[in-house]
């Protein structure tokens, strides 16, 4: 018996240790980012390989808040990312459900089409998109970005949602329908609650993808009042000098909302399904 206890103990030690390794790998570069942000400019190179600078400063964070347009950029990014995440998840949930529960003509072609959208390099569609968006007045607007991000995120989100729907036994909703629910009611009352973790995951992906997107944001927007934060970062890189401290400070600040968002969707991610619900 004690051997079992001991091996269990060993197992959980190994488990924690493995988690620790992942944490170190994930966080070390971000730690370095923070270190650069709090290092005074004159020590940036002379103490470049030290793990912590001999002096430290908050001045870069202050500058980002007071001297730059970053508060606006963060606001814009938050608006664009949340709108994109919501819109994409809704559209994708509907389409994913159709893929999972129906047999219909053109399914294979549509699947292929969704895949093809991911295969052509974005730099080659940039100019045509610009030409389409410019006359519609969507080049210097957050709405334009939301539309584009939604379009490019929908294909993956559809596949993701489809596989979550696939994981839910068909007889669940069938039995609901036998009991007198319409298909839509069955979807709403039985299926949706079960796919909440999947929706949360989708929401999380799309949000972060939109949060960190740079190419379209850079090419379509030239007015700084509607710029998003990744493009704002680029302004710290000028031809003759890079304002590392401020750039990294802005980068660290940008991680905070993403972190909060992850904590927020945790609940749904972790919630999972209870065994009873699936038995049907």
């Amino acid at each position: 018996m004690s051997i079992i206890v001991f091996t269990n103990f060993l197992k959980s030690v190994a488990h924690r240790f493995a988690i620790l390794l992942y944490l170190v790998f994930a966080l070390f570069p971000l730690y370095w980012l923070l270190k650069i942000a709090v290092t005074p400019d004159k020590l940036l190179y002379s103490e470049g390989v030290k793990l912590w600078p001999s002096e430290f400063t908050w001045v870069n964070f202050e500058l980002v808040f007071t001297q730059s347009e970053f508060p606006t950029f963060f606001m814009n990014s938050a608006i664009v990312s949340s709108a994109t995440a919501l819109l994409t998840t809704l559209i994708a949930a509907a389409a994913g459900y159709a893929f999972c529960r129906f047999k219909f003509r053109g399914k294979l072609i549509i699947t292929g089409l969704l895949l093809v959208t991911q295969m052509f390099p974005l730099v080659m569609v940039l100019a045509p998109i610009y030409k389409i968006m410019a006359p519609l007045g969507l080049t210097n607007s957050l709405l334009g970005l939301v539309i584009i991000y939604t379009a490019f995120n929908v294909p993956f989100a559809v596949f993701l949602m489809q596989s979550f729907f696939d994981g839910i036994p068909r007889d669940l909703e069938e039995s609901a329908m036998v009991e007198g629910c319409s298909r839509f009611q069955a979807l709403y009352k039985v299926i949706i609650p079960l796919t909440l973790p999947g929706m949360a995951a989708t929401l999380g992906f799309v949000f972060t993808a939109a949060w960190s997107e740079m190419l379209f944001a850079l090419m379509l927007i030239s007015d700084s009042s509607v710029s998003t934060f990744p493009v704002g970062l680029l302004n710290f890189v000028s031809k003759f000098a890079v304002q590392w401290g401020q750039m990294m400070a802005a980068g660290v600040l940008a991680l905070i909302p993403a972190c909060i968002f992850f904590v927020f969707i945790q609940r749904y991610l972790v919630q999972g399904l209870t065994a009873g619900a699936v038995k049907g």
Partner: peptide, 21 residues
């Protein structure tokens, strides 16, 4: 005033000009 980040200024201006902006 539109301030383009230097690293991407060339392609951005080219895109603006190419699409008539």
């Amino acid at each position: 005033i539109t301030s383009l980040p230097w690293g991407q200024a060339f392609e951005k201006l080219a895109t603006m000009v190419q699409s008539g902006q």
